[in-house]
Computed example of a mutant assay.
Amino acid sequence: MFGFNSTKFSNPSTFILMGVPGLEDLHIWISIPFSLMYVVALLGNILTIFIIKTKPVLHEPMFYFLSMLAVTDLILSTSTLPKMLGIFWFSSHKIDFHACLTQMFFIHAFSAVESGLLVAMALDRYVAICNPLRHTSILTNSVVIQVGAVALLRGLVLMTPHPFLVGMWPYCRTNVVPHTYCEHMAVVKLACADITINSLYSLAVIMFIVGTDVTCISLSYVHIFRAVFNLPSKDARLKTLSTCGSHVCVILTFYIPALFSFLTHRFSAQIPRHIHILLANMYLLVPPMLNPIIYGVRTKQIRDCVLQLFNTKVN
Protein backbone atom coordinates (compact mmCIF):
# COMPACT_ATOMS: atom_id res chain seq x y z
CA MET A 1 0.00 0.00 0.00
CA PHE A 2 2.81 2.41 0.89
CA GLY A 3 5.30 1.08 -1.65
CA PHE A 4 7.92 -0.44 0.66
CA ASN A 5 11.28 0.90 -0.41
CA SER A 6 13.86 -1.87 -0.56
CA THR A 7 16.48 0.24 -2.34
CA LYS A 8 19.92 0.09 -0.74
CA PHE A 9 20.55 3.29 1.18
CA SER A 10 22.45 4.11 4.35
CA ASN A 11 20.90 7.48 5.18
CA PRO A 12 17.33 7.88 3.93
CA SER A 13 16.19 11.40 3.19
CA THR A 14 12.72 10.56 4.47
CA PHE A 15 10.85 7.99 6.50
CA ILE A 16 7.29 6.85 5.75
CA LEU A 17 5.00 6.78 8.79
CA MET A 18 2.31 4.16 8.19
CA GLY A 19 -0.10 5.31 10.87
CA VAL A 20 -1.84 2.39 12.57
CA PRO A 21 -0.96 -0.76 10.58
CA GLY A 22 -3.97 -2.96 9.96
CA LEU A 23 -6.42 -0.15 10.67
CA GLU A 24 -5.70 2.08 7.67
CA ASP A 25 -9.36 2.07 6.62
CA LEU A 26 -10.30 3.40 10.07
CA HIS A 27 -7.81 6.27 10.15
CA ILE A 28 -10.51 8.92 9.72
CA TRP A 29 -12.56 7.47 12.58
CA ILE A 30 -9.49 7.10 14.81
CA SER A 31 -8.63 10.73 14.14
CA ILE A 32 -11.91 11.98 15.67
CA PRO A 33 -11.17 11.08 19.32
CA PHE A 34 -7.49 11.92 18.85
CA SER A 35 -8.25 15.40 17.50
CA LEU A 36 -10.80 16.04 20.27
CA MET A 37 -8.25 15.02 22.91
CA TYR A 38 -5.70 17.35 21.32
CA VAL A 39 -8.12 20.29 21.33
CA VAL A 40 -8.97 19.65 24.99
CA ALA A 41 -5.25 19.38 25.82
CA LEU A 42 -4.46 22.65 24.03
CA LEU A 43 -7.32 24.64 25.53
CA GLY A 44 -6.97 23.16 29.01
CA ASN A 45 -3.23 23.65 29.34
CA ILE A 46 -3.22 27.14 27.80
CA LEU A 47 -6.04 28.14 30.15
CA THR A 48 -4.10 26.68 33.10
CA ILE A 49 -1.00 28.68 32.24
CA PHE A 50 -3.05 31.86 31.71
CA ILE A 51 -4.93 31.48 35.00
CA ILE A 52 -1.77 30.83 37.02
CA LYS A 53 0.06 33.73 35.37
CA THR A 54 -2.70 36.29 35.85
CA LYS A 55 -4.03 35.35 39.31
CA PRO A 56 -1.67 36.40 42.16
CA VAL A 57 -3.47 34.04 44.56
CA LEU A 58 -2.03 31.14 42.54
CA HIS A 59 1.56 32.35 42.73
CA GLU A 60 2.64 29.44 44.91
CA PRO A 61 5.14 26.58 44.34
CA MET A 62 2.45 23.97 43.58
CA PHE A 63 0.93 26.12 40.84
CA TYR A 64 4.32 27.10 39.42
CA PHE A 65 5.09 23.40 39.02
CA LEU A 66 1.63 22.91 37.52
CA SER A 67 2.31 25.61 34.92
CA MET A 68 5.60 23.87 34.05
CA LEU A 69 3.68 20.62 33.68
CA ALA A 70 1.17 22.36 31.38
CA VAL A 71 3.98 23.67 29.14
CA THR A 72 5.50 20.17 29.01
CA ASP A 73 2.13 18.65 28.08
CA LEU A 74 1.71 21.18 25.27
CA ILE A 75 5.13 20.26 23.87
CA LEU A 76 4.45 16.52 24.16
CA SER A 77 1.06 16.59 22.45
CA THR A 78 2.14 19.07 19.76
CA SER A 79 5.21 16.97 18.95
CA THR A 80 2.98 14.14 17.73
CA LEU A 81 -0.61 15.18 16.98
CA PRO A 82 -0.21 17.59 14.02
CA LYS A 83 1.81 15.04 12.02
CA MET A 84 -0.45 12.20 13.12
CA LEU A 85 -3.55 14.06 11.96
CA GLY A 86 -1.77 14.82 8.68
CA ILE A 87 -1.40 11.06 8.20
CA PHE A 88 -5.03 10.36 9.08
CA TRP A 89 -6.60 13.23 7.12
CA PHE A 90 -4.32 13.92 4.17
CA SER A 91 -2.26 10.71 3.80
CA SER A 92 0.83 12.81 4.51
CA HIS A 93 3.04 9.86 5.42
CA LYS A 94 6.48 11.28 4.62
CA ILE A 95 8.66 12.82 7.30
CA ASP A 96 12.16 14.17 6.78
CA PHE A 97 14.90 12.02 8.33
CA HIS A 98 16.16 14.80 10.61
CA ALA A 99 12.61 15.91 11.45
CA CYS A 100 11.95 12.33 12.53
CA LEU A 101 14.98 12.38 14.84
CA THR A 102 13.89 15.77 16.23
CA GLN A 103 10.39 14.49 16.93
CA MET A 104 11.84 11.43 18.65
CA PHE A 105 14.03 13.62 20.86
CA PHE A 106 11.18 15.92 21.93
CA ILE A 107 8.84 13.03 22.74
CA HIS A 108 11.29 11.12 24.90
CA ALA A 109 13.00 14.13 26.46
CA PHE A 110 9.80 15.83 27.58
CA SER A 111 8.32 12.56 28.81
CA ALA A 112 11.33 12.45 31.14
CA VAL A 113 10.80 16.12 32.04
CA GLU A 114 7.17 15.41 32.95
CA SER A 115 8.24 12.56 35.21
CA GLY A 116 10.72 14.88 36.94
CA LEU A 117 8.03 17.52 37.46
CA LEU A 118 5.79 14.95 39.12
CA VAL A 119 8.63 14.34 41.58
CA ALA A 120 8.91 18.10 42.17
CA MET A 121 5.17 18.30 42.86
CA ALA A 122 5.47 15.40 45.33
CA LEU A 123 8.28 17.33 47.05
CA ASP A 124 6.00 20.37 47.29
CA ARG A 125 3.21 18.29 48.88
CA TYR A 126 5.70 16.72 51.29
CA VAL A 127 7.01 20.08 52.49
CA ALA A 128 3.52 21.61 52.65
CA ILE A 129 2.14 18.80 54.82
CA CYS A 130 5.14 17.64 56.85
CA ASN A 131 6.74 21.06 57.41
CA PRO A 132 3.99 23.61 56.71
CA LEU A 133 5.51 26.47 58.74
CA ARG A 134 8.65 26.43 56.59
CA HIS A 135 6.95 25.74 53.25
CA THR A 136 7.41 29.25 51.82
CA SER A 137 10.94 29.60 53.19
CA ILE A 138 12.07 26.22 51.77
CA LEU A 139 10.35 26.36 48.38
CA THR A 140 11.21 29.92 47.42
CA ASN A 141 10.80 31.14 43.85
CA SER A 142 14.50 30.57 43.16
CA VAL A 143 14.32 27.01 44.49
CA VAL A 144 11.25 26.30 42.36
CA ILE A 145 13.09 27.57 39.27
CA GLN A 146 16.14 25.46 40.12
CA VAL A 147 14.06 22.32 40.62
CA GLY A 148 12.28 22.90 37.31
CA ALA A 149 15.62 23.50 35.58
CA VAL A 150 17.01 20.23 36.98
CA ALA A 151 13.97 18.32 35.67
CA LEU A 152 14.41 19.94 32.25
CA LEU A 153 18.17 19.41 32.02
CA ARG A 154 17.94 15.81 33.17
CA GLY A 155 15.43 14.99 30.44
CA LEU A 156 17.42 16.78 27.74
CA VAL A 157 20.79 15.29 28.75
CA LEU A 158 19.58 11.69 29.16
CA MET A 159 17.62 11.69 25.89
CA THR A 160 20.12 13.54 23.69
CA PRO A 161 22.00 10.31 22.76
CA HIS A 162 18.83 8.73 21.32
CA PRO A 163 18.69 10.63 17.99
CA PHE A 164 22.47 10.42 17.58
CA LEU A 165 22.48 6.65 18.12
CA VAL A 166 19.59 6.23 15.70
CA GLY A 167 21.16 8.54 13.11
CA MET A 168 24.50 6.75 12.97
CA TRP A 169 23.13 3.40 11.70
CA PRO A 170 22.70 2.47 8.02
CA TYR A 171 19.11 1.87 6.87
CA CYS A 172 19.18 -0.54 3.96
CA ARG A 173 15.98 -2.57 4.41
CA THR A 174 13.08 -0.13 4.28
CA ASN A 175 12.24 3.41 5.27
CA VAL A 176 8.66 2.58 6.28
CA VAL A 177 8.02 3.06 10.01
CA PRO A 178 5.01 1.03 11.25
CA HIS A 179 3.87 3.74 13.63
CA THR A 180 2.07 7.09 13.83
CA TYR A 181 5.19 8.93 15.02
CA CYS A 182 8.95 8.37 15.20
CA GLU A 183 9.01 6.17 18.27
CA HIS A 184 12.58 5.22 19.14
CA MET A 185 12.42 1.43 18.89
CA ALA A 186 10.06 1.48 15.88
CA VAL A 187 12.67 3.47 13.92
CA VAL A 188 15.86 1.81 15.12
CA LYS A 189 14.52 -1.66 14.31
CA LEU A 190 14.73 -0.66 10.63
CA ALA A 191 18.52 -0.36 10.81
CA CYS A 192 20.61 -3.09 9.19
CA ALA A 193 23.06 -3.16 12.11
CA ASP A 194 23.40 -4.49 15.63
CA ILE A 195 21.14 -2.19 17.65
CA THR A 196 21.92 -3.74 21.03
CA ILE A 197 23.44 -0.49 22.27
CA ASN A 198 20.21 1.38 21.47
CA SER A 199 18.06 -1.19 23.25
CA LEU A 200 20.29 -1.32 26.32
CA TYR A 201 20.67 2.45 26.58
CA SER A 202 16.94 3.01 26.15
CA LEU A 203 16.10 0.36 28.74
CA ALA A 204 18.71 1.69 31.19
CA VAL A 205 17.46 5.29 30.88
CA ILE A 206 13.81 4.30 31.31
CA MET A 207 14.58 2.11 34.31
CA PHE A 208 16.72 4.85 35.86
CA ILE A 209 14.11 7.60 35.36
CA VAL A 210 11.08 5.56 36.36
CA GLY A 211 12.89 3.78 39.20
CA THR A 212 14.31 6.99 40.66
CA ASP A 213 11.17 9.05 40.25
CA VAL A 214 8.69 6.44 41.48
CA THR A 215 10.93 5.77 44.49
CA CYS A 216 11.12 9.48 45.36
CA ILE A 217 7.37 9.93 44.94
CA SER A 218 6.66 6.82 47.04
CA LEU A 219 8.98 7.95 49.84
CA SER A 220 7.35 11.38 49.84
CA TYR A 221 3.90 9.88 50.22
CA VAL A 222 5.02 7.47 52.94
CA HIS A 223 6.05 10.52 55.00
CA ILE A 224 2.90 12.40 53.96
CA PHE A 225 0.58 9.56 55.02
CA ARG A 226 2.48 9.16 58.29
CA ALA A 227 2.02 12.86 59.04
CA VAL A 228 -1.64 12.83 57.99
CA PHE A 229 -2.63 9.87 60.14
CA ASN A 230 -1.01 11.52 63.15
CA LEU A 231 -3.47 14.41 62.88
CA PRO A 232 -5.99 14.45 65.75
CA SER A 233 -9.30 14.67 63.85
CA LYS A 234 -10.80 12.81 60.91
CA ASP A 235 -11.84 16.05 59.22
CA ALA A 236 -8.27 17.36 59.37
CA ARG A 237 -6.96 14.12 57.89
CA LEU A 238 -9.48 14.18 55.03
CA LYS A 239 -8.86 17.86 54.29
CA THR A 240 -5.10 17.34 54.20
CA LEU A 241 -5.36 14.24 52.02
CA SER A 242 -7.64 16.08 49.58
CA THR A 243 -4.78 18.48 48.79
CA CYS A 244 -2.84 15.48 47.44
CA GLY A 245 -5.72 13.99 45.46
CA SER A 246 -5.06 15.89 42.23
CA HIS A 247 -1.36 15.04 42.25
CA VAL A 248 -2.04 11.34 42.85
CA CYS A 249 -4.52 11.27 39.94
CA VAL A 250 -1.99 12.94 37.63
CA ILE A 251 0.70 10.46 38.67
CA LEU A 252 -1.59 7.53 37.84
CA THR A 253 -2.64 8.95 34.45
CA PHE A 254 1.02 9.39 33.49
CA TYR A 255 2.74 6.25 34.77
CA ILE A 256 0.08 3.60 34.20
CA PRO A 257 -0.31 4.14 30.39
CA ALA A 258 3.46 4.73 30.02
CA LEU A 259 4.49 1.55 31.82
CA PHE A 260 1.77 -0.52 30.18
CA SER A 261 2.83 0.72 26.72
CA PHE A 262 6.52 0.11 27.50
CA LEU A 263 6.00 -3.40 28.87
CA THR A 264 3.68 -4.56 26.09
CA HIS A 265 6.00 -3.11 23.43
CA ARG A 266 9.06 -4.95 24.72
CA PHE A 267 7.86 -8.12 26.39
CA SER A 268 4.61 -9.26 24.80
CA ALA A 269 4.90 -10.43 21.22
CA GLN A 270 1.34 -11.84 21.32
CA ILE A 271 -0.33 -8.41 21.46
CA PRO A 272 -1.22 -7.12 17.96
CA ARG A 273 0.88 -4.28 16.60
CA HIS A 274 -2.05 -1.87 16.30
CA ILE A 275 -2.75 -2.32 20.04
CA HIS A 276 0.87 -1.37 20.81
CA ILE A 277 0.57 1.74 18.67
CA LEU A 278 -2.79 2.85 20.06
CA LEU A 279 -1.42 2.41 23.61
CA ALA A 280 1.66 4.46 22.70
CA ASN A 281 -0.60 7.23 21.45
CA MET A 282 -2.78 7.12 24.56
CA TYR A 283 0.34 7.53 26.68
CA LEU A 284 1.14 10.81 24.88
CA LEU A 285 -2.44 12.12 24.62
CA VAL A 286 -4.32 11.14 27.76
CA PRO A 287 -2.12 12.87 30.41
CA PRO A 288 -2.00 16.25 28.57
CA MET A 289 -5.78 16.10 28.17
CA LEU A 290 -6.61 14.98 31.72
CA ASN A 291 -4.08 16.97 33.76
CA PRO A 292 -5.78 20.38 33.42
CA ILE A 293 -9.20 18.76 33.93
CA ILE A 294 -8.06 16.99 37.10
CA TYR A 295 -6.52 20.11 38.60
CA GLY A 296 -9.37 22.31 37.42
CA VAL A 297 -12.02 20.11 39.01
CA ARG A 298 -10.22 19.03 42.18
CA THR A 299 -8.29 22.20 43.11
CA LYS A 300 -10.56 24.82 44.66
CA GLN A 301 -8.24 27.77 43.98
CA ILE A 302 -8.06 27.02 40.25
CA ARG A 303 -11.75 26.19 40.03
CA ASP A 304 -12.71 29.47 41.68
CA CYS A 305 -10.38 31.46 39.40
CA VAL A 306 -11.77 29.81 36.28
CA LEU A 307 -15.36 30.47 37.36
CA GLN A 308 -14.48 34.05 38.19
CA LEU A 309 -12.87 34.50 34.76
CA PHE A 310 -15.92 33.20 32.88
CA ASN A 311 -18.37 35.08 35.07
CA THR A 312 -16.47 38.30 34.36
CA LYS A 313 -16.64 37.66 30.59
CA VAL A 314 -20.36 36.86 30.73
CA ASN A 315 -21.16 40.01 32.71
Score class of each variant (00 low, 15 high):
36 L>Q: 14
37 M>I: 03
19 G>K: 01
130 C>V: 14
41 A>P: 04
3 G>S: 06
240 T>P: 13
236 A>F: 07
187 V>D: 02
259 L>R: 03
284 L>N: 13
2 F>C: 14
192 C>K: 06
163 P>T: 01
273 R>C: 11
86 G>E: 09
168 M>L: 09
126 Y>N: 10
18 M>E: 15
160 T>S: 12
261 S>V: 05
310 F>A: 07
107 I>L: 09
56 P>H: 01
244 C>H: 00
189 K>M: 06
277 I>L: 02
310 F>G: 00
204 A>F: 12
222 V>F: 14
39 V>W: 13
45 N>K: 05
279 L>I: 05
25 D>C: 08
259 L>K: 02
165 L>M: 15
230 N>L: 14
67 S>G: 11
123 L>S: 08
130 C>D: 08
170 P>M: 02
293 I>V: 15
23 L>N: 00
184 H>M: 02
31 S>E: 04
17 L>N: 03
24 E>D: 13
280 A>K: 04
8 K>A: 07
68 M>D: 10
251 I>N: 05
96 D>Y: 04
58 L>F: 03
221 Y>S: 03
41 A>R: 06
90 F>D: 10
12 P>Y: 08
18 M>L: 13
251 I>Y: 15
35 S>L: 06
188 V>Y: 06
239 K>A: 15
63 F>S: 12
207 M>L: 14
225 F>A: 03
182 C>Q: 05
157 V>I: 12
254 F>M: 10
122 A>W: 03
219 L>S: 12
116 G>I: 06
246 S>P: 07
84 M>E: 00
116 G>W: 07
96 D>G: 15
26 L>A: 09
113 V>R: 02
261 S>Y: 02
219 L>G: 12
242 S>K: 15
294 I>F: 10
219 L>D: 03
90 F>I: 01
20 V>F: 04
12 P>C: 05
68 M>W: 11
33 P>N: 01
258 A>F: 12
100 C>S: 01
117 L>R: 09
152 L>S: 01
102 T>E: 02
127 V>P: 02
239 K>H: 15
267 F>E: 03
299 T>P: 00
11 N>P: 01
51 I>V: 15
221 Y>G: 04
290 L>A: 15
32 I>A: 11
289 M>T: 15
295 Y>C: 13
243 T>Q: 14
49 I>P: 10
117 L>K: 07
88 F>Y: 12
35 S>C: 14
57 V>D: 04
182 C>N: 00
271 I>N: 07
44 G>V: 02
213 D>G: 09
79 S>P: 12
186 A>H: 03
156 L>R: 07
247 H>I: 10
244 C>Q: 11
135 H>L: 13
23 L>D: 09
274 H>E: 11
313 K>W: 05
235 D>Y: 02
209 I>N: 12
76 L>V: 14
229 F>M: 07
201 Y>I: 02
151 A>E: 10
253 T>L: 00
281 N>K: 05
181 Y>H: 01
168 M>R: 07
32 I>V: 08
15 F>C: 01
61 P>N: 05
205 V>F: 05
234 K>Q: 07
228 V>G: 04
208 F>L: 15
117 L>D: 08
132 P>N: 04
208 F>Y: 15
246 S>F: 08
162 H>S: 01
